[in-house]
């Protein structure tokens, strides 16, 4: 599906955005007046974003976003700070509901074809199917075992055998089982940063979600831990649809099948990763991936 920005809008949008979302960097090139292709043609889309505007209270943060995310692929969102990539990610499991005043003002987000902002959506089930890993590792101050079992417990699972199996499966999946199997009852706060983040991934996949959202999962980690997480993401993409927000273009290049570039609350370009980095169609994308502004 191809959507075209009206030329007028593209020129007006940055000014609108200036008020709240982001100030364009001094070196930022002008927003292209060319029509932009905002969604790659995928037939097996699991997440569909259509004509979406997003506001924090009165401040508009995202403008007319159209996006189709393919199932069981890794999709990366890149773009400078404040461009709205995290905001969009957080729309997919409606965690933005926590922020007072944040809401989708136009358009819709569909997951598996269902508009998730409709009244009859079971939020607990949605979040069970759309897992999330945050920028900073945030394990609960509980034991490792309880951290992984938490998601199942809140969904009413209390059989020990089921929990035990799930904990082992998820920790194995997150490449933690061999390291931690002897101290499952130790407090998760005592793990290293990288281990904590992998534990958070294990926790997120315990509820067997279809989609895994990752909000800059490596930004607080050292290079070795980062490479382990990236390896993990690569493996996870066999079973899950992964959407990852990242600041690092190298990371996007390494892990993502598709990449979306955002700028000032707008989706500028969405294409297979190779294309974005080697042959971007938009000027801004080109400038960004070459490191001319950030």
């Amino acid at each position: 599906m191809v959507t075209t920005y009206p030329i007028m809008m593209s020129t007006v949008a940055p000014k609108k955005a200036e008020s709240g979302v982001a100030t364009p960097p001094a070196a930022a090139p002008e927003v292209s007046e060319m029509a932009s292709e905002t969604s790659s043609p995928v037939s097996n889309a699991i997440i569909t974003v259509k004509d979406m505007d997003f506001c924090y209270g009165a401040k508009q943060a995202m403008f007319n976003v159209n996006l189709n995310i393919a199932t069981k692929k890794v999709t990366a969102f890149i773009g400078p700070s404040g461009c709205g990539k995290s905001t969009l990610l957080r729309c997919f499991n409606r965690i933005n509901d926590r922020i007072p005043g944040a809401h989708i003002s136009k358009g819709e987000v569909r997951i598996k074809g269902k508009n998730i902002n409709e009244e009859d959506v079971d939020l607990a089930q949605l979040r069970r199917q759309v897992g999330m890993v945050f920028q900073r590792s945030n394990p609960f101050p509980k034991s490792i075992y309880e951290n992984v079992a938490y998601g199942l417990r809140v969904h009413g699972e209390s059989r020990k055998s089921v929990l035990d199996t799930a904990v082992e499966r998820c920790l194995t999946h997150a490449a933690l089982w061999s390291e931690l199997k002897d101290r499952l009852n130790a407090n998760a706060m005592g793990l290293s940063g990288g281990q904590q983040q992998r534990l958070c991934i294990a926790r997120a996949i315990a509820t067997e979600p279809d989609i895994l959202l990752m909000d800059e999962p490596c930004s607080a980690l050292d290079p070795i831990a980062t490479s382990k997480i990236e390896e993990l993401i690569f493996q996870l993409s066999n079973d899950y649809t992964v959407v990852i927000v990242t600041h690092s273009m190298q990371q996007a290049r390494r892990v993502a099948d598709d990449t979306a570039f955002f700028y000032l609350g707008k989706l500028i370009e969405f294409a297979p990763t190779m294309e974005i980095f080697s042959n971007p169609r938009q000027k801004q994308t080109e400038a960004y991936v070459r490191g001319q502004f950030s």
């Binding site: 499991n93 965690i95 926590r98 939020l123 607990a124 089930q125 949605l126 979040r127 069970r128 897992g131 999330m132 945050f134 900073r136 945030n138 394990p139 609960f140 101050p141 938490y150 998601g151 417990r153 809140v154 969904h155 958070c200 926790r203 997120a204 509820t207």
Partner: peptide, 19 residues
């Protein structure tokens, strides 16, 4: 971050508070 993580796992507000 704790309550955010809990809610992202599908816990209700009450579950988050008490667990």
């Amino acid at each position: 971050a704790f309550s955010e993580a809990s809610e992202a796992l599908g816990a209700t507000k009450l579950q988050t508070v008490f667990k």
